[in-house]
């Protein structure tokens, strides 16, 4: 135990760096992915046919592809067409596209489950379509997707471990490097696992608090 703590002390900076990277990748991809997903979801329900079909294709391809493949694809494909992304940028791109597709599908379902009477009532008092979306439909849709959205957040934290494959120094890769040096395999992998667990428990708790605040009455 004592050796673990002294090794942990030696590795503290590397671990911290990895942890921050993991959080950074997760938060950025959740935020941008959610914005993208909202847009996709709205288009999937109300968009003109051509755009809708394009979005449908995007969503289906993303959801049908393993995240690891997405990450490798966004690492290798852009450089072929002359676009140079760093490993971190490529990883973020993959996570954002993955998140956007999932959130898009969730938003679509939520919007379609709102009874048509809501739109009719909003129309009849004279609201324009963008106003109906902003004040009537999205507030209801967002409340109902909250639990799934939180879940997607936790999924993304876990998916971010896959960025280690393309050499992004996030928590898992840093842990691997540390283990490679001191051979305390079990201890450090358990420690990393504990950190992931704590982050996801935190997300879950924050989500529950949020749900209580905006509960659909």
């Amino acid at each position: 135990m004592e050796t673990f703590f002294s090794e942990l002390w030696i590795a503290r900076d590397a671990l911290m760096e990895g942890f921050v990277r993991t959080i950074e990748a997760s938060v950025v991809s959740i935020l941008i992915g959610t914005a993208l997903g909202l847009l996709i979801g709205i288009v999937l329900v109300y968009g003109p046919l051509v755009v809708r079909l394009l979005c449908r294709a995007y969503v289906d391809v993303m959801r049908g592809t393993p995240v690891l493949v997405l990450i490798l694809a966004s690492f290798y494909i852009p450089s072929v067409v002359g676009l140079h992304l760093s490993a971190f940028q490529a990883g973020l791109l993959a996570l954002i596209l993955f998140c956007g597709a999932h959130i898009g599908e969730i938003v679509r379902g939520a919007l379609q489950s709102i009874p048509p009477g809501q739109t009719e009532a909003a129309r009849s008092i004279g609201l324009t379509f963008p106003q109906i979306l902003t004040y009537v439909l999205l507030p209801q849709a967002l409340r109902s997707i909250l639990p799934t959205w939180i879940n997607t957040g936790a999924e993304l934290v876990k998916a971010s471990t896959l960025l280690s494959v393309i050499g992004v120094g996030e928590l898992l890769l840093k842990t691997q490097e540390i283990v490679g040096r001191n051979f305390m395999t079990l201890d450090f992998y358990l420690f990393a696992g504990l950190l992931y667990l704590l982050v996801n428990l935190g997300i879950e708790q924050a989500g529950k608090a949020l749900e209580r605040r905006v509960a659909v009455r």
Binding site: P115, G117, E120, A121, S124, Q140, R143, V216, R217
Partner: peptide, 13 residues
């Protein structure tokens, strides 16, 4: 015009 519906259609939120 104002319209009142059979199923009320109040905004639940």
């Amino acid at each position: 015009t104002g319209m009142v519906f059979q199923s009320f259609n109040l905004f639940p939120h």
